[in-house]
Simulated assay, not measured.
Amino acid sequence: MSTAISLDAPYDIEAGDRPPLALIAGPTASGKSDCAVALALELERRGRHAVVINADSSQVYADLTILSARPVASEMSGIDHRLFGAWDGAQSCSAADWARAAAATIAEVHASGGVPILVGGTGLYIRTLLEGIAPVPPIEPEVRQVVRALPVEEAYAALVEEDPERAACLAPADTTRVARALEVVRSTGHGLAYWQARPSGGIGHTLSVHGAVLLPERQSLYHRCDLRFTRMIERGAMAEVEALLARRLEPDLPVMRAIGVPELAGVIDGRWPLETAIERGAQATRNYAKRQFTWLRHQLPEQWTRLEFENYNANAVTDILLRFPG
């Protein structure tokens, strides 16, 4: 089987070629969306149709245009963008849900002879698409009900007894992950590690993946995070949250827990002033960027290009384009 050694090289899937997938990953506020558009424009200039596909867990929701920093039409520069705002906030988009949609979109782009450009910073989305997901069977409702009713201290103590390997990896106060690990071992008879060692559904082996990871200098990244949240307020983030609250969605839905929503909801409800919300939102953004930075630096394939830079600018974009094969 041959592979597409450059992004703009012709490929024949029926002949056994592995078609190309460009992938630009990076923490929030690192400039990856601009890079994806710049790469797409360069490929279009070379005569190859390019499509940008979202791999950000906040930008999938239609309700979060401003708070997710989803690209607007003027920023897309005429490039086709897919899976941005594709889910209604009332529907949770899991990694498996997104991976199925992304795989179908990638196949559609390849069928037309185009080049898909995946862009985002949600590591679980990227890993699920390329490597597959642990095939954990559905949890028995009775088991889930009992486990979710336990105080986290009792749940963790039970996990230490029933799946000590997983318990050692978790913080005792991590309510969500502790409950998930306990319900899996009780419902299936196997711990999460057993299922995670048997991933299924990944498409990475069918593609020629050209990956780049943006790793800006941390202090400059954090500064961009602060500026980003302030500008979101100026662009109308408060009205976006007001519209979201008016829908009276379940509070545990991902769209309701997205960075900025709880912080600004507190202002709307009169629990704290706007200045406090801005401070908390900026801090939450910085914390998220830090977690993304660490994950992306160490968990993605070693052969992917790591691009470290101090400040995002046009030169950084050019560098990214030149480092992609072809």
Results as ranks from 00 to 15, higher is better:
residue 151 P to M: 13
residue 15 A to W: 03
residue 318 T to N: 08
residue 216 P to S: 11
residue 161 E to I: 11
residue 170 L to E: 14
residue 153 E to F: 11
residue 253 L to R: 10
residue 57 S to C: 07
residue 316 A to I: 14
residue 208 S to P: 00
residue 127 R to D: 15
residue 52 V to P: 04
residue 22 A to N: 05
residue 87 W to T: 13
residue 90 A to L: 07
residue 257 R to F: 03
residue 65 T to A: 14
residue 221 L to N: 03
residue 155 A to H: 01
residue 75 E to N: 14
residue 64 L to N: 04
residue 306 R to C: 13
residue 52 V to R: 00
residue 34 D to N: 10
residue 37 V to F: 13
residue 140 E to C: 05
residue 230 T to Q: 13
residue 10 P to C: 02
residue 89 G to D: 09
residue 273 P to R: 00
residue 129 L to A: 11
residue 239 A to Y: 06
residue 82 R to H: 12
residue 264 L to W: 01
residue 139 I to D: 05
residue 324 F to L: 15
residue 246 A to T: 07
residue 309 F to I: 10
residue 5 I to D: 06
residue 73 A to K: 11
residue 133 I to M: 09
residue 54 N to G: 14
residue 31 G to C: 07
residue 97 D to T: 04
residue 99 A to R: 00
residue 146 V to G: 08
residue 29 A to W: 06
residue 105 T to K: 07
residue 76 M to Y: 08
residue 60 V to H: 01
residue 64 L to H: 07
residue 184 V to F: 03
residue 159 L to H: 14
residue 306 R to H: 15
residue 42 E to V: 11
residue 202 G to A: 07
residue 42 E to Y: 11
residue 56 D to L: 05
residue 52 V to M: 05
residue 141 P to W: 03
residue 226 D to H: 04
residue 53 I to L: 13
residue 201 G to C: 08
residue 70 R to W: 12
residue 42 E to K: 11
residue 326 G to T: 07
residue 300 L to S: 07
residue 219 Q to C: 09
residue 77 S to E: 12
residue 10 P to N: 06
residue 97 D to C: 04
residue 132 G to K: 03
residue 92 S to P: 00
residue 78 G to M: 13
residue 284 A to R: 12
residue 319 D to E: 13
residue 13 I to Q: 07
residue 51 V to Q: 08
residue 175 T to H: 09
residue 202 G to W: 01
residue 112 S to K: 04
residue 193 A to H: 09
residue 270 G to C: 11
residue 170 L to R: 04
residue 81 H to Y: 14
residue 41 L to Q: 13
residue 254 P to L: 02
residue 46 R to V: 14
residue 175 T to N: 09
residue 124 L to R: 15
residue 69 A to G: 09
residue 144 R to P: 10
residue 150 L to V: 06
residue 242 E to Y: 02
residue 117 I to E: 10
residue 122 T to K: 02
residue 128 T to H: 05
residue 207 L to F: 15
residue 215 L to K: 04
residue 245 L to F: 10
residue 138 P to A: 14
residue 235 R to H: 10
residue 46 R to T: 14
residue 34 D to K: 07
residue 278 I to N: 02
residue 225 C to E: 07
residue 211 G to Y: 01
residue 113 G to Q: 01
residue 196 Q to F: 10
residue 168 A to G: 03
residue 67 L to N: 13
residue 189 G to Q: 02
residue 248 R to V: 09
residue 208 S to V: 03
residue 42 E to A: 15
residue 188 T to H: 00
residue 281 G to L: 10
residue 53 I to T: 06
residue 266 G to N: 02
residue 318 T to W: 05
residue 160 V to D: 00
residue 222 Y to Q: 04
residue 303 Q to N: 04
